[in-house]
Simulated scan of single mutants.
Amino acid sequence: MASTSFKIRDFPQDERPRERLIKDGPDKLTNQELLAIILRTGTTKEPVLELSQRLLNHFEGLRMLTDATVEEITSISGIGKAKAAQILAALEIGRRINRLNFDDRYTIRSPQDGANYVMEEMRFLSQEHFVCLYLNTKNQVLHKQTVFIGSLNASIVHPREVVRP
């Protein structure tokens, strides 16, 4: 793809991110291009591809962006509440889709199954979380509850807090 200093309309029709997504599929686009599609427009001084790259640079990629608040996103010049809401909505849809396969009575047959069930949600947490999975007699998850949020590397929980729910 050509330099990002050009506006989208300066690109040939078949090199524009939206058209490439339709033609080649979303997996062929960079994070910058996908974010540019979500943002839709840049500013009068900055094309959308540059704005999306600056956003990714500010949050050091998608990972940190997933935890960003509206205030943090809108602190970036060129991103208002509407664009921040679009970004957060897209990220939440991704999270919900990722959880879909676990919502149909996921069965725990091993410790690895339990870890897999909570891994995506807990992978990047900055503090210890003590999470309980409550199962039925067929080892299917009925309920998941965070019982305690601890410090950076410890979580002290009394047994009654686990059994109470």
Rank of each mutant, 00 (worst) to 15 (best):
Q140F: 10
T66I: 00
T66Q: 07
F130G: 07
L29W: 06
D14F: 11
A90I: 01
L133E: 12
N153R: 09
I38R: 04
L142S: 10
T4V: 06
L34T: 05
L55C: 12
A82F: 08
D104L: 12
I8W: 00
G150Q: 06
E71Q: 09
Q32R: 15
Q112D: 14
T30Y: 08
A89T: 13
P17S: 01
S52F: 02
A89Q: 14
S126A: 12
I97M: 12
E33R: 03
G114N: 02
T146N: 15
I22Y: 11
R109K: 15
V131E: 09
I93F: 02
T137L: 09
R123S: 14
T44N: 14
P12I: 04
K144E: 15
S155W: 00
I156F: 05
S3D: 15
R20A: 07
L56E: 10
T30V: 04
P47E: 09
P111Q: 04
P159Y: 02
T41Y: 14
P111F: 09
H58Q: 14
R18P: 02
Y134P: 11
R54N: 15
I37G: 11
E50I: 13
T44V: 13
Q112W: 06
E19L: 07
P12G: 00
R20N: 11
M119A: 12
V163S: 13
D113A: 06
K144I: 11
D113T: 04
N116H: 08
A82W: 03
Q53T: 02
E92I: 00
Q140L: 08
T146S: 13
A89Y: 10
F11K: 01
M1W: 05
G25D: 13
C132N: 12
I97E: 10
A36L: 07
A84L: 07
E46P: 03
Y117V: 05
T30I: 03
G42E: 14
A84R: 02
T41H: 14
R99H: 13
E60P: 00
L56T: 08
A85M: 08
T146G: 04
K83Y: 05
P165W: 04
A2C: 01
R18D: 07
G78W: 09
R95M: 05
K45N: 15
S3Q: 10
D27V: 05
P12V: 05
L34M: 13
V48C: 05
G25A: 11
L21A: 15
G94D: 01
Q86W: 04
I73D: 08
E128P: 00
R9N: 10
I108P: 13
K23W: 05
A85R: 07
K144V: 15
L29A: 06
I38S: 03
P111H: 03
Q13F: 13
D67F: 02
P159M: 01
P26C: 03
L135N: 11
T44M: 08
S5C: 04
Q127E: 14
Q53L: 15
V118P: 09
L55D: 03
L152Y: 13
G80V: 05
E50H: 00
D24W: 07
S110M: 08
L51F: 07
N136P: 07
L62V: 10
F124Y: 15
R99W: 05
I76P: 08
R105Y: 14
I149S: 12
E161A: 11
L56F: 10
L39G: 06
L91V: 09
